[in-house]
Amino acid sequence: MKKDDNKSSNITCPIYKSWRELPHIPVSKGQKGSIGETGDWRTFRPEIDKKKCNKCGICYVYCPDGVIVFKEGSVPEIDYTYCKGCGICKVKCPKKVIEMIQERE
């Protein structure tokens, strides 16, 4: 990773000049997109049919990347900047109202 990359993806990662400064092990604190905008990896985009969604929040629970934002009583929102399009939400949706739509350039 070039130093410029660090800036562009807003990562706060200490840059060590010497092994003497290192802690015992590397540890990451929770921060958004520490490896970049992973939405770029997506081939299929999940889309929730807002009218048919029963707002149960199961997609939010199962999302392995934590990119579904859910507030009790409202339709979940998917953060497409980081959603990789794995499709687990589609499989888990009990109402079958999430569709995977192919991304086009």
Partner: peptide
């Protein structure tokens, strides 16, 4: 105070240095 441990380190990062440690 959640943390992730054992994340990917790129070749340019400190994998080698942590081995030395």
């Amino acid at each position: 105070n959640p943390i992730t441990h054992g994340n990917l380190l790129m070749p340019q990062q400190e994998y080698l240095d942590f081995r030395f440690l």
